[in-house]
Structure formats: C-alpha cells, structure tokens
Computed example of a mutant assay.
Amino acid sequence: MSCFGKLFSKLFGFQPKPEFILHSITFKTPESESLSDGDLLWATIDFESRYDCRIWMFSQVKEDELPNGGYMPSDVLPAGRHTIERYFYLNDIDAEKYPNGLTVTGAILSAKSTNNDALYHEVHNINYVYKPFSSEELAQRQTADKDNLNIEFVSVRYDGHILSPNDSISIDSQITVRIQAECNENVRFSCVPLTDLSYGFDPISETVDGLLDLNFNMNEIGDISGFMIKAYNRYDIAIESLQIDFPLKVENWHDDGQDAPITFEPDNLYYANMADENDNLIPVDEHSTIAHNTDLSSYMYLNHQAKHGVIVWIYDMLGSEIGECIFKSSLLSYDECQEDDNPCFIINWEDVDFSENPVREISGFYFQLTNVAGDVLAEQTVEHALTIRQNEE
C-alpha cells in the first residue's frame, strides 16, 4: 500500500498504552548495506496485545524531507502474542536533490485497536541509506504506464446513497468515491479527503472493467473540501492526480435511532429463482445441501426510527461463532421503513473463500441492524442448519 509522509501525522499521533507490550523489533537488513530506490525494509516484530489490533510500521526521515514511499497494510490480529513481519520503503528519490542518498533515521511502529484506540506509537532509531537511481533511470520510471491514462470522477456515496456537494455525512461511516479510468493493468489508485481532520482510507486498488470504488472514513466532525485521487504506476510512483472539489460536512450520527422502538424480525428463507406449480416460493428446508452460488431470498419485518437510515448485515453462523458476512444492504431510509415493511434480501456464498474446504457447515444466520455510523441497533440469531458446497462448474 502506498501512503505518503504528509498523511502520517493525520493517522498516527498516539502515545503508548499499557495494554500493548513490544517484546522486540529486529531489522533483517544490515545497516551497513545501502538500499536502492523501492527496496523493502523488513522487520520482525514480537508483541502482545490485550485487544484485537492492527500493526503498522513506516519510515521517519529528517523533518524537512518528505520522500514518497509506502508500507505494508495491516490485518486485524487477535488479542494475544504474535510474531509478524512488516516492511516499508522509499521510492521516487530525486537524484539531484539527494545525490548521496536519503537516510531513514527511524522506524515508527504504531498499533491501534479495532475501535480505533491507540495502543502503541514509538520511534525506533535506525540508520539506513536509500540510494536513488540515476536521473535518466528515474525519469523513465516516473513516466512508466502514463500512456493513454485517463481518470473520470463518477460519484460519492455511502451505503448506496448518492451524495451531492454540501451534504452531510457521519463520522465512522464508509464514504465511497467511484471513478472510471482508462489505464493499463499496472496502474492502481488511491483516494483521500481534502481536510485537516483525521481519517482512514483503503490501500491503493486496481480497476475492474474500468470502474473502481475507493473508500475512506472520517474520524472527526468538521468539513472536507473534496477529494484527491492519485494514480500510481508499477513502481508505486504517482503519475497522475485528479482533485475533486466536493464540500461535505462531517457530523456525529452515533445516537441516531438508538433507544427507539424497532421491529427487526427475520422471516422465512426461500430459493430466489424457484417456484412451485402455483408460483409460490419454495422454502429452504433445514439441513439442505446447496451450491455456494445459489441465490436465496431472506425476508424480514423491519421498522426503525433512525433519521439517517439503517443498514442490514447478514452473517452465517458456524456453531455458536459468527462466520462470514454474506450480505450488506444499501441504505434503508427512515421514510421507507415507517410501516412494518417486509423487504427481501438476496444472499449467497459467492464471496466466501472455499479454497481450503469445499464444504461449509453452517448452523444458521446472524442478522444485525446498524445506523450509518455503525452502531448496532438490533440483532437476531436464527437457527437454520445448511450445508454449503462449492460449485466447481
């Protein structure tokens, strides 16, 4: 994931907490060896945390030096002790400005819990020199993959709701910027909001059939003026950018719909594309075996009081454990849910990984209702044992 020094202060300005213990951090490359532009600098990190958390490691250079570079995306690691490896790198180093190379003076290690609380943030002193490429080779790298590159802004939305300039959004909601791009297969994209507020954003991603959704979320209330979309080539060098002026107001909708009457009752489960001779839906019997790409219709009685709307999430259950998310609804507005409506949601297991086991035994389903800010307003567990088999055709 490419991510630049100017963004680090927005994402990680934290002090260590006792819930996190760093046992050791060991760098694998000897400091006597020079690194080339783009080389990965790996470290082995031994730590333990009382909470599920994410770990990042990124570079520190002199205050007046802001090179391009990136670091390794972090998975969520369960509470406990772990030994993991992480890297960062510098690239696109200006040979004329830094003819003798650029020195990394520190490795910044940060840990955050899954609810965004800072667990650890420390600088570990190191001394590595990144050597630039020649001006000629760097120029070639800076122009790679630029031919016929074109980026067009399409829309901004959250949970399927299209936004207009000067609309409001909530902190902790996922904001999606959609782009249409013409590019070759090596080009990837990122998008960040233009603001002084703190935020989080997705790793850089590649288009599918020319379309790409880029996501971020805001951590503070206030204003954003728009978005900056950047395209990166095969060397993780930014080769194009597109600034979108799109003012939005960030508000706190965490109380929306809480402590208010709610109807949230799952109904029956049917085959989505099957009917009997009387055109009646055919129910899915318990203990049935179905293919992972079979569409099922899940009905629900729903009434809520969240003024900004709600989202329905459906997970399968593995025994008493919540398994994979197999459905997330678009925004269900306040107005369309004032009667005891009976919406239908189409679910299947097409996005579940069956590579390790072609058979998935589920005990039922976990239904969750959240507001836009992600607060759980209601939840239900339904027992309905099924066997899901990967369809290999």
Rank of each mutant, 00 (worst) to 15 (best):
residue 109 L to V: 05
residue 72 M to S: 10
residue 72 M to A: 11
residue 77 L to T: 12
residue 111 A to M: 11
residue 63 E to I: 15
residue 113 S to Q: 11
residue 78 P to H: 13
residue 51 Y to L: 09
residue 126 I to E: 00
residue 130 Y to E: 08
residue 124 H to S: 06
residue 76 V to D: 05
residue 85 E to R: 02
residue 60 Q to P: 02
residue 85 E to G: 00
residue 67 P to E: 13
residue 95 A to R: 07
residue 119 L to H: 05
residue 118 A to V: 07
residue 82 H to F: 04
residue 113 S to F: 07
residue 43 A to C: 13
residue 70 G to P: 06
residue 106 G to R: 01
residue 63 E to D: 15
residue 54 R to G: 08
residue 114 T to Q: 13
residue 124 H to P: 03
residue 109 L to P: 04
residue 88 F to V: 03
residue 129 V to C: 03
residue 136 E to H: 08
residue 80 G to F: 12
residue 67 P to K: 11
residue 68 N to R: 12
residue 74 S to V: 12
residue 44 T to M: 01
residue 90 L to C: 08
residue 55 I to W: 10
residue 72 M to L: 07
residue 94 D to Y: 10
residue 104 V to L: 04
residue 91 N to D: 10
residue 104 V to F: 00
residue 85 E to M: 01
residue 134 S to F: 05
residue 118 A to M: 15
residue 136 E to I: 13
residue 52 D to V: 06
residue 58 F to N: 03
residue 119 L to Y: 06
residue 63 E to N: 11
residue 132 P to V: 09
residue 128 Y to A: 02
residue 43 A to E: 02
residue 128 Y to E: 03
residue 80 G to R: 06
residue 98 Y to Q: 15
residue 100 N to F: 12
residue 71 Y to R: 01
residue 129 V to Q: 05
residue 122 E to C: 00
residue 65 E to M: 08
residue 85 E to V: 00
residue 106 G to T: 02
residue 110 S to N: 04
residue 66 L to N: 15
residue 57 M to L: 06
residue 100 N to E: 12
residue 115 N to T: 10
residue 106 G to D: 03
residue 130 Y to H: 14
residue 109 L to W: 01
residue 73 P to E: 12
residue 72 M to E: 09
residue 130 Y to Q: 06
residue 93 I to N: 15
residue 61 V to D: 08
residue 58 F to K: 05
residue 72 M to K: 12
residue 47 F to K: 04
residue 95 A to P: 13
residue 103 T to R: 07
residue 123 V to P: 00
residue 76 V to M: 12
residue 78 P to E: 11
residue 131 K to Y: 04
residue 102 L to D: 13
residue 47 F to D: 04
residue 113 S to N: 15
residue 111 A to V: 15
residue 106 G to Q: 03
residue 71 Y to A: 03
residue 85 E to D: 05
residue 83 T to E: 02
residue 75 D to G: 05
residue 126 I to C: 01
residue 50 R to V: 00
